[in-house]
Amino acid sequence: MPDENHALSIDIPVELRSVKSVHSIGSLQFEGDLPAALFHLQLITDDIADWNADAEVIVVFHTNAGHLTLHDEAYNASRKIAAGNPNRELIADLVTRGVEIELCGATAKANGWGNADLLPNVKINTDAMARTIQLVQQGFVKITEA
C-alpha cells in the first residue's frame, strides 16, 4: 500500500501531439549503471507512445559517448574490455521505437571507427555540430545530455 507521505500528484501534466527532438549526447552520466541519456530516451519514447504523438527523435552520439554505437567487437577494442557493449539491447530497443541513432563522423574518424564497427541501424553523419544545426534549423528542439 502506498505511503500517504509519498503520494505523487502531477501539477503540470504535459501531453504533446508532435515531438521533433535532437538529442546531443557527448558524454555520459549514470543512473546506477545505466547511462542517464538512454533512460531519458526511454522516458520520452514511453510518453510519445502514451500520447500517440507524431514523433521524430534523433540521437547524435559524439565525443566521449560515441562508443555506445559500437558492436561488441569494436566496443571491446575501444574500451579495452571483453564484455561487449552493455547498451546494445537498449539502443536496439530505441530503434524499434522509432528513434534514429547517429554517430558523429568526426568522432568516428578520430577513433578510427568505420560503418562496419557500428550496431545495426546506426548512421554516421558529417559531424555532430553540423547535424545538430541542420536539425534545429528544421524545427527540432535540441536536448543536450551531459
Rank of each mutant, 00 (worst) to 15 (best):
L41M: 07
S27P: 02
L34F: 01
F39L: 08
S21P: 00
P13Y: 10
H23G: 04
F30A: 00
F30S: 01
S27H: 09
L38N: 05
A37P: 04
S24R: 09
I12W: 09
H40Y: 07
G26A: 11
V14R: 14
E15Q: 15
H23V: 05
G26Q: 10
I10F: 09
K20V: 05
S24E: 07
V14W: 11
I12N: 14
L34M: 10
V22C: 07
A36K: 05
V22Y: 01
S24Y: 11
I25Y: 00
S27C: 08
V14D: 10
R17C: 12
S24A: 10
V22E: 04
L34W: 06
V22F: 04
H40A: 01
V14I: 15
S18D: 15
G32H: 05
S21R: 09
D33L: 12
Q29D: 13
I10V: 15
P35F: 00
Q29Y: 08
H40E: 03
D11W: 09
S27F: 00
L38T: 06
D11C: 10
L34K: 08
I25W: 03
L28R: 05
L16C: 13
V22H: 03
V19I: 13
V14S: 13
S24V: 08
I25M: 00
A37R: 00
P13D: 10
E15Y: 10
D33Q: 14
A37M: 04
G32S: 07
I25H: 03
S24I: 07
G32D: 04
H40L: 07
S27M: 09
D11V: 11
F39A: 10
I25P: 05
F39E: 07
V22Q: 04
E15K: 15
L41A: 00
S27D: 11
V14N: 13
H40M: 05
I10A: 12
